[in-house]
Amino acid sequence: MSIDLETCRAIIAAVRAEGEARRLKPLTVAVLDAGGHVVAVEREDGASMSRFEIAFGKAYGALALGMGSRSLMARAEQQAYFVSAVGAAIGGALVPVPGGVLVRTADGELLGAVGVTGDSSDNDEAAAVAGVAAVGLVAQAE
């Protein structure tokens, strides 16, 4: 099973609503399926350049290593050479800071990942988690 377009759009809408409610800076949201393919992405007006690549890298890195990007950050702090090598191995698509969460069903099945960027990494992650929860799925941030 993989994540469908309508669910991805609903996640993005919920992430953006959370960002508005929290008065976050303009966000960019990328939703990938379990194979790392982009299903949907939106960049809010005023978002700075290269935000797609950052959102994608947060989500793709989470998928590549099977953990949320908060855990990737901790791993990078402990094993910098490993995380650097993984980033090189996957073409640089690895941004090991909070804001990338895995998307799972209640049973734990992996559906994809969401990457959010634009505000602080902690706020990006909070918006991603809220967006996933809004559609009845489970966000794995760690």
Score class of each variant (00 low, 15 high):
residue 2 S to Q: 14
residue 3 I to S: 03
residue 5 L to I: 14
residue 6 E to I: 12
residue 6 E to R: 15
residue 7 T to N: 07
residue 8 C to F: 12
residue 8 C to T: 12
residue 11 I to P: 04
residue 11 I to Q: 04
residue 15 V to A: 07
residue 15 V to Q: 01
residue 16 R to H: 13
residue 16 R to S: 05
residue 18 E to L: 07
residue 18 E to V: 01
residue 19 G to F: 04
residue 20 E to F: 00
residue 21 A to S: 10
residue 23 R to Q: 03
residue 25 K to Y: 03
residue 25 K to G: 02
residue 25 K to Q: 13
residue 26 P to I: 08
residue 26 P to W: 09
residue 26 P to T: 04
residue 26 P to N: 12
residue 26 P to Y: 10
residue 26 P to K: 13
residue 27 L to N: 06
residue 28 T to P: 13
residue 31 V to R: 02
residue 31 V to L: 04
residue 32 L to K: 11
residue 32 L to H: 11
residue 32 L to G: 13
residue 35 G to W: 00
residue 37 H to D: 08
residue 38 V to K: 07
residue 38 V to C: 03
residue 38 V to E: 07
residue 38 V to R: 11
residue 39 V to R: 15
residue 40 A to Q: 14
residue 40 A to G: 08
residue 42 E to I: 06
residue 43 R to K: 15
residue 43 R to Q: 15
residue 44 E to N: 14
residue 44 E to G: 14
residue 45 D to H: 08
residue 47 A to M: 10
residue 47 A to K: 13
residue 47 A to H: 12
residue 47 A to Y: 12
residue 48 S to K: 15
residue 49 M to Q: 11
residue 49 M to K: 00
residue 49 M to H: 11
residue 50 S to K: 07
residue 50 S to P: 00
residue 52 F to W: 05
residue 52 F to T: 13
residue 54 I to T: 14
residue 54 I to M: 14
residue 56 F to H: 15
residue 56 F to W: 11
residue 56 F to G: 10
residue 56 F to V: 12
residue 56 F to S: 10
residue 57 G to N: 07
residue 58 K to P: 14
residue 58 K to W: 08
residue 59 A to S: 09
residue 59 A to G: 10
residue 59 A to Y: 09
residue 62 A to H: 03
residue 62 A to S: 15
residue 63 L to A: 13
residue 63 L to G: 11
residue 64 A to H: 05
residue 67 M to C: 15
residue 67 M to W: 02
residue 68 G to S: 10
residue 68 G to M: 13
residue 68 G to K: 10
residue 69 S to G: 08
residue 69 S to Q: 05
residue 69 S to R: 06
residue 70 R to H: 13
residue 73 M to S: 11
residue 73 M to A: 15
residue 75 R to L: 15
residue 77 E to Q: 15
residue 77 E to H: 15
residue 79 Q to C: 12
residue 81 Y to S: 14
residue 82 F to P: 02
residue 82 F to G: 01
residue 83 V to W: 10
residue 83 V to C: 07
residue 84 S to Q: 09
residue 87 G to K: 04
residue 88 A to L: 09
residue 89 A to N: 01
residue 90 I to P: 05
residue 91 G to E: 02
residue 91 G to Q: 02
residue 91 G to S: 01
residue 91 G to N: 04
residue 92 G to R: 07
residue 94 L to T: 01
residue 95 V to L: 13
residue 96 P to I: 05
residue 98 P to S: 05
residue 99 G to S: 04
residue 99 G to D: 02
residue 100 G to C: 06
residue 100 G to V: 01
residue 101 V to G: 02
residue 103 V to K: 09
residue 104 R to I: 00
residue 105 T to K: 12
residue 106 A to G: 03
residue 106 A to M: 08
residue 108 G to W: 00
residue 108 G to L: 00
residue 110 L to F: 01
residue 111 L to K: 07
residue 112 G to T: 00
residue 114 V to Y: 05
residue 115 G to Q: 02
residue 118 G to Y: 08
residue 118 G to S: 11
residue 119 D to L: 03
residue 119 D to I: 03
residue 120 S to Q: 01
residue 124 D to G: 06
residue 125 E to W: 03
residue 128 A to D: 00
residue 130 A to N: 03
residue 131 G to K: 00
residue 132 V to A: 03
residue 133 A to D: 02
residue 133 A to W: 00
residue 134 A to K: 07
residue 135 V to W: 11
residue 137 L to N: 10
residue 137 L to H: 12
residue 139 A to S: 03
residue 141 A to R: 14
residue 141 A to D: 05
residue 141 A to E: 08
